[in-house]
């Protein structure tokens, strides 16, 4: 095995992606470590992650939905849970992958591996949290006696879009906060505000026309509406795919810049 160490200017994206393929096992290992690190020193262990979804649903179902409800063609709790689920997955990935380089600087500044693996690993470890939501969702579907629609297959397609959205935002946060931490500190705030611009708790139709038009460019709106369309066959406006295009662009550019920055990353974290 011959390795040539060269200055970062001369490294190509293709070579990096090739290396990433060689190290692909590491994504799994880091994802496992993320989960292990999260449940370290807890008594409930893995159940604590599942409990989060259950508690959030119960609190929403018993308290909040008594005061705020919107009329939809299926139970409002299901509407809100699918929204929260999409939002949770996105914000989990965006927040954690955004700070992943910083959190793992101990390892990233001492051992060589393609560092893009660190943010990517959160896209995989989110699947455990997703399982928690899936259990809640299944339980609610059974409780209300609703069969998922024929579009069910698309559910996982939108899940992938959800993950990519989280990763794109997370990678950009990570990129912008390698040297200066300002962005990393503001990111949770901005992500939090973003929830109000996404139809998590309210249906799009309650918005005035001009506001709804803006929503088409929100990739999360695409995911949320996509989830509902695939499960309950609620109407899905094809214009929501604009958001998907935007996030695809963001994702590709973030990977590109991340690769370019990787060589000297260890100096700044």
């Amino acid at each position: 095995m011959i390795v040539i160490i060269d200055s970062s200017k001369n490294q190509s994206i293709a070579a990096y992606l090739k290396k990433l393929w060689c190290y692909r096992n590491l994504i799994l290992i880091f994802a496992y470590r993320n989960i292990q690190g999260k449940i370290a020193q807890t008594r409930l262990g893995i159940f604590i992650i599942l409990l989060q979804a259950i508690i959030l649903t119960l609190v929403f179902g018993f308290f909040i939905s008594r005061f705020i409800t919107f009329l939809v063609s299926y139970p409002y709790l299901l509407f809100a849970v699918t929204g929260m689920m999409a939002w949770y997955i996105f914000s989990y990935i965006a927040t954690f992958s955004g700070t992943s380089i910083m959190q793992n600087r101990q390892i990233a500044s001492k051992i060589y591996f393609p560092r893009i693996i660190l943010p990517f690993s959160y896209g995989l470890s989110v699947l455990l949290d997703f399982t928690g939501w899936l259990i809640v969702l299944t339980a609610l579907l059974i409780y209300y006696g609703i069969m998922p629609s024929y579009n069910f297959w698309a559910f996982f397609l939108f899940l992938i879009i959800d993950v990519i959205t989280g990763l794109a935002v997370g990678l950009w946060i990570a990129l912008l906060s390698i040297k200066n931490r300002d962005v990393a500190l503001f990111a949770p705030l901005i992500i939090g505000i973003g929830m109000f611009f996404t139809p998590v708790f309210y249906p799009v139709k309650v918005l005035p026309e001009y506001l709804a038009d803006i929503l088409y460019f929100n990739p999360l709106a695409c995911v949320v509406e996509g989830f509902r369309w695939s499960l309950f066959n609620s109407p899905f406006d094809i214009r929501f795919l604009w958001g998907f295009l935007i996030i695809l662009l963001l994702f590709i550019t973030s990977v590109f810049f991340f690769v370019k920055k990787d060589g000297n990353m260890a100096d700044n974290i």
Partner: peptide, 18 residues
């Protein structure tokens, strides 16, 4: 660090066999 690949050199080259 440079030899192990943790950080890229600003100039020059190294060949590592193994």
């Amino acid at each position: 660090k440079v030899l192990s690949g943790v950080t890229s050199p600003s100039g020059g080259k190294a060949i590592i066999n193994g």
